[in-house]
């Protein structure tokens, strides 16, 4: 029988969602066109070619190298794309994902990406078209609620604040707003106004966000209720502290 990765312990809905995010087996909830995504990211004008930093690899004549033969370059690397970034911010109030699980999702399921995990934001650097593939995946699936998560290249501090009255995460630059029950993006990642308003669809209800979140909270699924997770965290902490990841020393 082939080995199947288990990804994360636990029996609660939060643990199950964490497994989903890590494995990439997440439900697609919305459709965002390539042009809309390009507008929100703000790195290039929609419809234009990807600017490149070097000629396509096929034209460059690569040196003989066993590793280069073994590893197929990503589409972005093949074409010589620039390195560009996407940065997500997730609210602490039951946002579906968190920086850690966005990073797990990126590192496990995508090639050629460089995720950076911070307390309030998660940035991924990659060749432009590889980055867009990841950004589209994370935006279109249940990893993102348009009201509780946002693309923010600068000024991310709303993630730790209480939500606004309308249930949208605070943003001092007001990149997104709730209009007629749907979330409309009106500025790009860094706060430049965009020509076309992008509709990200309806936000999740409070109940749905609580069901899809990967965050343990005392007012939803408390961390200490997940006995299996707690047991494994204790086990890893003890092994790391006592034996420096050398369990054999214990015996």
């Amino acid at each position: 029988m082939a080995y199947e990765a288990q990804f994360y312990p636990g029996a609660t809905s939060v643990a199950e969602n964490r497994r989903k995010h890590m494995s990439g087996k997440v439900e697609k909830l919305r459709e965002i066109s390539d042009d809309d995504l390009t507008i929100i990211l703000g790195h290039r004008v929609p419809g234009t070619d990807y600017p490149s930093t070097h000629p396509p690899l096929a034209e460059m004549g690569e040196p003989e190298c066993s590793i280069r033969e073994l590893v197929e370059p990503t589409d972005g690397a093949k074409a010589g794309d620039r390195i560009r970034y996407v940065q997500f911010v997730d609210s602490m109030y039951n946002a579906p994902s968190t920086p850690y699980f966005r990073t797990y999702n990126a590192a496990i399921n995508f090639r050629g990406v460089d995720p950076g995990t911070l307390s309030g934001r998660q940035v991924v650097e990659a060749r432009e078209r590889d980055m867009e593939e990841l950004a589209k995946f994370q935006l279109e699936t249940e990893m993102t609620c348009p009201a509780l998560a946002c693309l923010r290249g600068a000024s991310v501090h709303g993630h730790s604040l209480r939500l606004q009255e309308d249930g949208v995460m605070f943003d001092m630059l007001e990149r997104v707003r709730l209009e007629n029950g749907t979330i409309i993006v009106q500025k790009d990642q860094v706060g430049r106004p965009i020509d076309k308003k992008v509709d990200l669809g309806k936000p999740m209800s409070e109940e749905e966000a609580a069901k899809r979140t990967t965050i343990y909270r005392v007012d939803n699924v408390p961390y200490r209720e997940d006995k299996e997770v707690l047991e494994w965290v204790h086990r890893i902490f003890e092994k790391r502290t006592m034996y420096g990841y050398k369990p054999a020393v214990q015996e």
Binding site: G153, A154, S155, M172, L173, E174, V190, G191, R192, P193
Partner: peptide
């Protein structure tokens, strides 16, 4: 906008 690439853009 107080910082970042869009610094100075009206909010």
């Amino acid at each position: 906008v107080p910082f970042g690439p869009a610094v100075g853009t009206p909010v």
